[in-house]
Design a protein around this nucleic acid. Sequence first.
DNA 1: CTTGAACCTCTAGTAACTACAGGTATTACG
DNA 2: CGTAATACCTGTAGTTACTAGAGGTTCAAG
Lengths: 159, 159
Amino acid sequence: MKEQKPAPSTTERYIGIGELARESGCKPETVRYYEQIGLLPSAPRNEGNQRRYTTAAIRRLTFIRHARDFGFSVEAVRELLEMADHPAMPCQEVDTLAKRHLAEVEARLARLTAVRDELQRMINQCAGGSVGQCHIIDVLSDHRLCHQVEPHGGADVIG
Amino acid sequence: MKEQKPAPSTTERYIGIGELARESGCKPETVRYYEQIGLLPSAPRNEGNQRRYTTAAIRRLTFIRHARDFGFSVEAVRELLEMADHPAMPCQEVDTLAKRHLAEVEARLARLTAVRDELQRMINQCAGGSVGQCHIIDVLSDHRLCHQVEPHGGADVIG
DNA sequence: CTTGAACCTCTAGTAACTACAGGTATTACG
DNA sequence: CGTAATACCTGTAGTTACTAGAGGTTCAAG
């Protein structure tokens, strides 16, 4: 992360994976998973083979969690962490990554807005009769009745 | 689907899975997958064990594809198909399904809008210096700098 | 010392496909 | 009619980002 670790004092408190998870807003399983895929460094273990963490881990995990909340992919988070670990470097790459992500978010927003509008139209035009007269089914059956929603490819496009 | 199949004329043209896929805007693998999970009925086979389809399959698959474009889950599509297959029934369930989906879409839209706004703010405030001064990294490091984006749980929330 | 919570590893499951490997069928061309 | 390109077949594994569970160990409190 941004701050270089101050030489850990001998009195530094170590916490377990449960407390780390609570502090940073995720589950112990997720923490282990992040360690497994290399987003978090392998934690030191105590005598009984349990992971011990310092507050540096809380900061790193919070960063990860927060970037994920923004919708950055795990691979993007990996890159952001790599950048954050090198505070002297120019932040152009960070900027580029953020802008690319913003563009994706905006594209999703546009699609989702079109979907919402069309859903609303469908629902408003349903007269409440039988399925045979239902405008919702009509729109889904016939793309010509739909004005805005275009086909997409892939499961992650809508969300 | 809505129309009961007119007794297939002896001159009806049969098409292969590739043409069906092209006509309905998906891939042959996806068609086989939909058959496997029961969204499409098992297609009759020719002498050489290849699937043969009629235009009814094009309509059904188009319906599926279109509903998926709207973001309905496969399970929701299954229910919609079941309803569409019974045109005499009241369309209240269709309506309910569509409204529930609309509510989900609107929730997603709200989250995504918050993400977009915050991303824009982050990017605008980046002065273009080093990573150490980068506002983007700051916001990701410290939730207090972020005004709108809240934590979520689950991979599908943002998209 | 015992009990219950927290922790460990490993495996499998989720959604909705997509991509291959290794083989067969059909079709077009010469 | 032969052959080569294309389309098709089955079955399995990979994708994303986790989550859930089995079956066992360790820790902290009383």
